[in-house]
Design a protein around this nucleic acid. Structure first.
Length: 433
RNA sequence: GGGGAGAUACUCAAGCGGUCAACGAGGACAGACUGUAAAUCUGUUGCCAACGGCUUCGCAGGUUCGAAUCCUGCUCUCCCCA
């Protein structure tokens, strides 16, 4: 007989896990000890500023995932109330306020996205509007404001930085709101841990301070490092903006490509943070990658793992198919052999432009077709420049300034695959839209 | 309230009567090399019916054959003194 199927793993496995994955920046004294004592609850806050999460949020979500796997209770706190106020941390300007309607809509959408990461049979999803919504201003300043000295609040980096350029009372108060969140979770949900990005440190300590003063309790916190790219630019952004989890905002293909295109050093970092692969597994992948870097094993493993999780197996399959078609050795002939439904399916993640047949026929210059008729380029000059530089392909073959596609060039009589530079593809559809 | 400085393209930043669509740097994009990587090198970077034309240098007027450059007013920003 096996003595026990489940031995209570020391909970500091959780922090060790985060350490080797490079997800731990700073932690309050005592955090590790507390976590090793037994299951506890920990939370991360999310602002409902948009109706989708983006890849930047993924770090915090993974924290909750690891927390859950280590046997603790993860709490995702949606800032339905605080989102109406705006956090000054890490921002140089006063934030725009969102309407209550927008926030409700965003909250619902975010809740849904989190469900593919966390098991909500044990995880909790709370909205701080539930406790702030009914709280009056007088109650707040009596119950919360009374406990935290202004000098303490002023000493925070987020406040100091903004004191010169100016900040409203609203934003100044923000740390008290977030601090109260923690206090509330501490008293109502036995939450003893707050996690977040380094820019949240100040707000997090206001929370533990409030808990200490108001409830004579001990609570803990730790932060994750700011995720950066090797070239110093911001993580999660491309020329075209944020990479969102919502397929309406970022196509599944673009999402997949975002991860696939990461540089070697970034991929090694990301795969630790954004996947649950074991250390051994990752190191083996890295070794394989070093042997045959052109196969992009590391990047592929990374992209596959996250894409499946966010967009499902079908989403991944489509993204891979599209990528094969666009970056593989697909020739003009192979493209032409595709059926119409295959084309629409495979290129569903690629931006499409409609051109009326009459417009297509009457067009006398390629640059005009690609700028005026279909906005692949912002202006005709830009299109010409790019054509001259040899940066444009149609149906997988290079074209120049004087080329002009005819009816014969159209795939299935109406499609034209336009490639701008190395990795920007567009589908031109010749039909009345 | 008094005094001073400034506003130029995506950003920083030259230019201070014609030769300015505007030096330079960064960024961005493209080409070569590669692995849809990194680094490096090269090119491009207001618009168009393109050896030419048009619209841009905070806004509105004015002087002049000619203005980003000079004058007047306005708006905004920053600094110093009360």
């Amino acid at each position: 007989m096996r003595p026990k199927i489940f031995t209570f793993e020391p909970m500091n496995n959780f922090l060790n896990e985060l350490k080797w994955r490079g997800m731990l920046a700073d932690s309050m004294p005592g955090t590790e000890e507390w976590l090793s004592k037994g299951p506890t609850a920990g939370y991360v806050g999310f602002d409902p500023t948009a109706d989708s999460l983006h890849v930047g949020h993924l770090v915090q979500i993974m924290l909750l995932v690891h927390l859950q796997r280590a046997g603790h209770t993860p709490i995702a706190l949606i800032g339905g109330a605080t989102g109406m106020v705006g956090d000054p941390s890490g921002k140089s300007q006063e934030r725009n306020l969102l309407s209550a309607n927008d926030i409700a809509h965003n909250t619902a959408a975010i809740r849904k996205q989190m469900e593919s990461f966390l098991d909500f049979s044990s995880a909790k999803l709370l909205n701080n509007l539930d406790w702030f919504g009914s709280m009056g201003f007088i109650d707040f300043i009596r119950d919360v404001g009374k406990h935290i000295p202004v000098t303490y609040m002023m000493a925070k980096e987020s406040v100091k930085k903004r004191l010169e350029t100016g900040m409203s009372f609203t934003e100044f108060t923000y740390q008290l709101l977030q601090g109260y969140d923690y206090y509330h979770l501490y008293t109502q949900h036995q939450c003893r841990l707050q996690m977040g990005g380094t820019d949240q440190w100040g707000n997090m300590t206001t929370g533990t301070e409030l808990i200490r003063r108001k409830a004579q309790g001990e609570a803990y916190a730790f932060t994750t490092p700011l995720i950066t790219k090797a070239d110093g630019s911001k993580f999660g952004k491309t020329e075209s903006g944020n990479i969102w989890l919502s397929p309406e905002k970022t196509s599944v293909y673009d999402f997949y490509q975002f991860w696939l295109r990461s540089s070697d050093s970034d991929a090694a970092k990301y795969i630790r943070i954004f996947t649950l692969k074991s250390k051994e597994e990752i190191e083996a992948l890295e070794a394989q990658h070093a042997l045959a870097p052109h196969e992009l094993k590391l990047q592929r493993a990374l992209a596959e793992d996250i894409t499946v999780r966010v967009h499902g197996a079908a989403g991944l399959k489509m993204a891979e198919k599209t990528s094969d078609m666009l970056f593989g050795k697909a020739t003009t002939e192979e493209l032409k052999a595709l059926s119409e439904s295959e084309i629409l399916q495979i290129f569903s993640g690629v931006p499409m432009f409609y051109v009326a047949p009459a417009e297509f026929q009457s067009c006398t210059e390629l640059a005009e077709l690609l700028s005026v008729k279909a906005a692949v380029f912002a202006s005709k000059s830009e299109a010409r420049r790019m054509l001259q530089a040899g940066g444009v392909s149609i149906n997988q073959s290079k074209v120049g300034l004087n080329d002009l596609p005819t009816n014969n060039s159209l795939i299935q009589g109406k499609y034209l695959l336009v490639q701008k530079g190395k990795k920007n593809h567009h589908l031109l559809i010749v039909q009345n839209s």
